[in-house]
Design a protein around this nucleic acid. Structure first.
Length: 882
RNA sequence: GGGCGCUUAGCUCAGUUGGCUAGAGCAUCUCGUUUACACCGAGAGGGUCGGGGGUUCGAGUCCCUCAGCGCCCACCA
C-alpha cells in the first residue's frame, strides 16, 4: 500500500483508534510476569467537555503510558469520570427552575433519578473526546466515582474514621452558599476584591466601623485589644447601655488580641454566627452566638422590622435608620475589601454556624507506619520522607504551607447528588436520639418505643470519594457487594489492586494539589497503608496566546481541542502542548504553535513516502542493519544517542526536552542530511531500520501518524506500532561517524560561502557533491577563498563560478525530471488549495471554529494560491527558457 | 503580613548537578531548474542572559541586593 501524497489526519485517526481498541492492546494484563506501570486518570466531570487543560494532561499521561508499554512493561492507565457533586447538582437545579419546579417539589428520589438519566445521556461526549486525543487507556476498566464498588469504599472509609474518632459531627462555622444552599470547603472559597461603603457608628461610648451594618442586630459585645491605651479605663467584662438599631441594648466589653488597634477606631462589635474571626473570639470568651441571616440569605426575626429582607435591602435601610437616630458618624466610599464567593457558581458566601461532619486532622491515631500521628503529620511525613515525590520539587513548600494552615475538613454537603453519609438516626417518644454509622443500613429491630431509622440527609464532599480514586478503582467490583468480606479481604482478592497499587505516577494540574493530591495521600495511607502514587507530576495552566486565562467569556482567544483536531490533527495538538511544557509552569498556546507541529507531522509523512518509494513493496527488513558508509555510521550513532536521551528524558519527566531531541533528529539529521545522502548511496537496510526506529520513538508523542505509517509498511506484517518494543541498543563506533560530521562542516561552509559570493544559481547538496572525496583539494581552496579574496572582486567570483558549473552536470534527463516534478508540485498544491477552499466553504466550520483557526486557514489559502502562481511561472519559464 | 515563580533574540520559550563560540520554534531578509516534502530547501541578520555587587580558573546557571511582572496563602471590624 502506498501512502497518499497528502496527510489528512481526520481520514485515519478514528479508524486507527478503533483498531487499537478492538485488538485490546491498551488492556492491562495483571497475570503477566512483567514490571508494572500504572496511572489513574484524573476523572473529568462525567457531564463535561474536553478543554485544552484536559488535553495537556492526556497528552502527558499518554506519552508516559505508551513509552512504558513499549519498554515491555505491563501498563494500566485507568480512565474514569467524576460525578462532580456540586456542579452537576447545580445544573439540575437550574434545569428544574427553567421547568418551573424545584427539587423539593419533585422529591429526592426523582431528583437523583433525573440526574442519573442526565449523566447517562451526556457522558458519551467526554469519553469520545478522550478517545479523540488518542489516549491509550484501558476502557474495559473504566470507573465512575458513584459506582457501587466506590460507594463501598467511601462508606468503609467513613466508618473506619468514625470509629477511630477521626470523624465527628459538630456545630462549627462553615462557608455557606445561600444560592446553592450548601456548605462549601475552605479551598473552594475564593476572595474577590470589591469596593463598597465603610460605615462608622456610635455605639454607646465607642465608635465602631463596619462594612456590614445588616449583621449588627444581635451585637452585644464590643471588642478591643488589651494593650490599647485609648481604652485603658474599660475593663474586660464591664457592661454599658447603648442605643442601637431596634432600641436599647446592654453591651459587654471584651479584650482580645485579635483586634488590630491600628484599624479604624480599634474597637469593633462581633457577629460570631456569621464570621470566622468573630466565631473564634466568641469561642475563646464563651460568648453567645446569635443567627442573624437565615440559610436562604434573608434577615431573621431578630432584625425586627427588617426581618425577611435581603442583605442588600437590609443594609440600605439599617444605615438609613441609624442615620436618622443620629448614630451614623461617617460613611467612607471606595472602601476596598475582599468578599468570599463560591468558586463554583460564584455565589457570595455567608458564613453560618451549622451542624456538620468534620474530619479531625489533629487527632493522633496509629498511622500506616505504626506510629502515633495525626492525619496532618502523616501528610507531612509522606512527602518529607520521600514516599511521594512531587515534580517539580518546589511545590513541596506549597504543600507544606497548606498543611500548616489546615483546619478540620468539613465533609458534609447539603445537596442531594453524591455519596450519602452512612449514618442513621432514630428517636423515641422521649426525644432521645440513637446514632448508627455503618457500611450497610442498620437492621430495624422494631425496638419498643423507637421510631424507624432515618439516614442523615447530607452527602459527602466530592473530594472525599475522589480521595480514594487510586485504589477504590482497582478492587474487584464483583466482590464489593459481598458484605461478608472485609475491606482487607476484598483488597487481597483483587488482582488489579495487587498488581497496580500504589500507582506509578499521578499527573495533574498544580491547582488541585490541595483538593485532591493531599487528600489522596491522607485517606490512602490511612485506609490501606500504602501511598496512592510514587510520583506526582504537576503541570501548569494552558493560557491563551496573550497570556490570559482561556475563558468562556472570551471565545476568540480560547483554543478548543475539538476544533483543532479535525483541522490540524490530534498529533499536532499533542506535540504543540508537549513542546512547550515544563513542570509546574504555565504555557501559552496558539494556532501558530499547532501549525508548526502539523508541519512536523507532514515531514514525518514525507520521509515515510520517500523511504517506501525507494524500498519498494518487496523489501524485507533484516534484523540487523549494517552500516556500509560514513553516513550510515553517523546516522546510526545519532539514532542511538537520540533514542537513549529520549528514554532518559521521559523517565525524568522532561517531556519538552525529549520531544525537542526527536524533532531535531528527524528533521535535521535524518531528513536534511541522511536522506539527502542516501540519494547518492542507498543502504536500504539502514534506511528502513532508521524509519522503523523513528516511528517507534516518535510514537509516544504522536501516536496516530506513526501508527498510520506503520500500517502501510509491508515489511511490518500485521504488527501494531502501539505494542512494538522500544529499539534495542545498537553498538556503534563514534569514530566511524566523525568523517560524516566533518563532511557536514565542509558542506555547510561551502554553502555559506556560495551565498556570500552570490552564487545563487543553485544550492550545494550532499548528493551533488560526489567530489567530496576526490576534490578535497578544491574544497580546501574554496573555504580558504573567503579569507583570501575580496568577495566583490571579479577574479574570485569567476573562478568559483567556473568550478561550480563543472560540479553540476545538468543533462536533459534531469531537466525533464524537474519539469515533471514541478507539475507534481502544482498538482499537490492544487489539492491543498482545494481542501482549504472546501473547509472555508463549509458554513459550520466558519461559524463554529474559533476565529484564529478560520483566519489561519484563510491566510494559508491565499499564500498557497500565490505559490501556485509562482510554480506555474517557474514552469513556464523553464519550458520556454531551455 | 507570609511564601512561590518569572525577567535570555522582534514574539513564545529551552538551557538537568556551574564548563565548547548562549540555543530552538515563529517572525524578518536573501536565494531556490535538487526525481519525499512549497505544510519544502539553502543561507543570513538579530542577545552587554532585568540592574548592581560577590564567590570561582570559569556564572545565564550559585550567593547577596535592587527593580518590574505574575501567582498562592492569611487578614480585611
Amino acid at each position: 500500500m502506498k501512502l497518499p501524497k497528502l496527510y489528512e489526519p481526520s481520514q485515519y485517526e478514528t479508524d486507527i483508534y478503533t483498531m487499537w481498541e478492538k485488538a485490546g492492546v491498551f488492556e492491562a494484563q495483571p497475570d503477566k510476569e512483567a514490571e508494572r506501570f500504572s496511572i489513574s486518570m484524573p476523572p473529568p466531570n462525567a457531564t463535561g467537555h474536553l478543554h485544552v487543560g484536559h488535553a495537556l494532561g492526556i497528552a502527558l499521561q499518554d506519552t508516559m503510558v505508551r513509552y512504558n508499554r513499549m519498554q515491555g512493561k505491563d501498563v494500566l492507565w485507568l480512565p474514569g469520570t467524576d460525578h462532580a457533586a456540586l456542579a452537576t447538582n447545580a445544573i439540575m437545579e437550574k434545569r428544574l427552575a427553567d421547568e418551573g419546579t424545584n427539587k423539593h417539589e419533585i422529591g429526592r428520589e426523582a431528583f437523583v433519578d433525573r440526574l442519573k438519566e442526565f449523566i447517562e445521556g451526556s457522558r458519551g461526549t467526554i469519553r469520545g473526546q478522550i478517545r479523540a486525543m488518542g489516549a491509550s487507556c484501558d476502557w474495559s476498566r473504566e470507573r465512575y466515582t458513584l459506582d457501587g464498588a466506590l460507594n463501598r469504599c467511601v462508606n468503609e472509609t467513613f466508618v473506619k474514621m468514625y470509629n477511630d474518632g477521626l470523624i465527628y459531627r459538630g456545630h462549627r462555622i462553615v462557608n455557606w452558599d445561600p444560592n446553592l444552599e450548601t456548605t462549601v470547603a475552605d479551598d473552594e472559597v475564593v476572595h474577590v476584591e470589591e469596593t463598597g461603603q465603610f460605615y462608622t457608628f456610635q455605639y454607646g461610648p465607642f465608635q465602631i466601623g463596619t462594612a456590614r451594618p445588616e449583621t449588627k442586630f444581635g451585637d452585644k459585645y464590643v471588642v478591643m485589644h488589651p494593650d490599647d491605651k485609648r481604652y485603658k479605663q474599660y475593663k474586660h467584662g464591664d457592661t454599658f447601655e447603648a442605643e442601637w438599631i431596634n432600641g436599647q441594648v446592654t453591651a459587654t466589653i471584651i479584650k482580645d488580641e485579635a483586634v488590630d488597634p491600628k484599624f479604624g477606631t480599634g474597637v469593633m462589635t462581633i457577629t460570631p454566627w456569621h464570621d470566622h474571626t468573630d466565631f473564634d473570639i466568641a469561642e475563646r470568651h464563651n460568648l453567645d452566638k446569635v443567627q442573624i441571616i437565615d440559610f436562604h440569605g434573608k434577615l431573621m426575626p431578630i432584625a425586627g422590622e427588617f426581618a425577611g429582607m435581603t442583605i442588600a435591602e437590609g443594609r440600605r435601610l439599617v444605615v438609613k435608620k441609624l442615620n436618622e437616630k443620629g448614630l451614623l458618624v461617617k460613611t467612607e466610599d471606595n472602601y476596598s475589601h475582599s468578599v468570599a464567593v463560591n468558586d463554583r457558581g460564584k455565589g457570595i458566601i455567608e458564613p453560618q454556624i451549622k451542624l456538620q461532619w468534620f474530619v479531625d486532622v489533629n487527632k493522633p491515631v496509629v498511622d500506616w507506619k505504626g506510629k502515633k500521628s495525626s492525619l496532618k503529620e502523616v501528610m507531612q511525613a509522606v512527602v518529607r520522607d520521600g514516599d511521594v515525590d512531587i515534580v517539580p520539587a518546589r511545590f513541596d513548600k506549597l504543600y507544606f504551607s497548606w498543611i500548616d494552615n489546615l483546619r478540620d475538613w468539613c465533609i458534609s454537603r447539603q445537596i442531594w447528588w453524591g455519596h450519602r453519609i452512612p449514618v442513621w438516626y432514630r428517636t423515641n417518644a422521649e426525644d432521645e436520639v440513637q446514632t448508627f454509622a455503618g457500611v450497610q443500613p442498620p437492621v430495624d429491630d422494631q425496638s419498643e418505643g423507637w421510631h424507624e431509622w432515618e439516614q442523615d440527609p447530607d452527602t459527602l464532599d466530592t473530594w472525599f470519594s475522589s480521595a480514594l480514586w487510586t485504589w477504590s478503582t482497582l478492587i474487584d467490583p464483583s466482590l464489593a457487594s459481598n458484605f461478608d468480606m472485609s475491606m482487607d479481604d476484598i483488597l487481597n482478592a483483587s488482582p488489579d489492586f495487587k498488581a497496580y497499587h500504589p500507582t506509578s505516577v499521578l499527573e495533574t494540574g498544580w491547582d488541585i494539589i490541595f483538593f485532591w493530591v493531599a487528600r489522596m495521600i491522607l485517606t490512602t495511607t490511612y485506609m490501606i497503608g500504602e501511598v496512592p502514587f510514587k510520583t506526582v507530576y504537576l503541570h501548569g495552566l494552558v493560557r491563551a496566546e496573550d497570556g490570559q486565562k482561556m475563558s468562556k467569556s472570551k471565545p476568540e482567544t480560547t483554543i478548543n481541542p475539538m476544533d483543532v483536531i479535525p483541522v490540524y490533527g490530534t498529533d499536532a495538538l499533542r506535540l504543540a502542548l508537549l513542546s512547550g511544557v515544563s513542570p509546574g509552569n504555565d504555557q501559552r498556546m496558539s494556532i501558530a504553535k499547532i501549525t508548526a507541529q502539523r508541519n512536523f507531522c507532514n515531514k514525518l509523512w514525507n520521509i515515510a513516502r520517500f523511504v517506501e518509494d525507494k524500498l519498494g513493496d518487496d523489501f524485507v527488513l533484516e534484523s540487523h542493519a549494517k552500516a556500509t558508509n560514513h553516513a550510515d555510521h553517523w546516522l546510526l550513532t545519532k539514532l542511538q544517542q537520540t533514542t537513549d536521551t529520549i528514554a532518559s528524558d521521559l523517565e525524568n519527566f522532561r517531556f519538552a526536552e525529549a520531544y525537542d531531541k526527536l524533532y531535531h533528529f528527524v528533521w535535521d539529521d535524518f531528513a536534511d542530511w541522511y536522506v539527502e545522502a542516501s540519494k547518492m548511496e542507498l543502504n536500504p537496510q539502514v534506511l528502513a531500520h532508521s524509519l522503523q526506529s523513528i516511528l517507534i520513538i516518535a510514537h509516544p508523542f504522536a501516536p496516530f501518524i506513526t501508527e498510520t505509517i506503520w500500517q502501510t509498511l509491508a515489511w511490518q506484517g500485521d504488527s501494531m506500532l502501539a505494542v512494538a518494543p522500544w529499539p534495542a541498543t545498537v553498538k556503534t563506533n563514534p569514530n566511524d561517524a566523525k568523517v560524516f560530521d566533518e563532511i557536514i562542516v565542509v558542506v555547510t561552509e561551502v554553502r555559506s560561502l556560495m551565498t556570500e559570493l552570490n552564487l545563487h544559481g543553485s544550492k550545494l547538496y550532499y548528493h551533488n557533491v560526489p567530489f567530496l572525496k576526490e576534490n578535497a583539494e578544491l574544497i580546501k581552496k574554496l573555504t580558504k577563498l573567503k579569507d583570501v579574496i575580496d568577495v566583490k572582486s571579479g577574479l574570485g567570483l569567476q573562478l568559483v563560478q567556473t568550478k561550480y558549473k563543472a560540479w553540476l552536470d545538468v543533462d536533459s534527463s534531469t531537466i525533464k525530471a524537474h519539469q515533471l516534478q514541478l507539475k507534481e508540485q502544482q498538482a499537490r498544491l492544487g489539492d491543498v488549495v482545494k481542501s482549504l477552499e472546501a473547509r472555508l466553504a463549509n458554513k459550520n466550520y466558519v461559524k463554529q471554529a474559533p476565529k484564529a483557526i478560520v483566519d489561519q486557514t484563510k491566510d494559508q489559502l491565499s499564500e498557497n494560491k500565490q505559490l501556485l502562481e509562482k510554480i506555474a511561472a517557474q514552469q513556464a519559464r523553464f519550458a520556454s527558457g531551455i
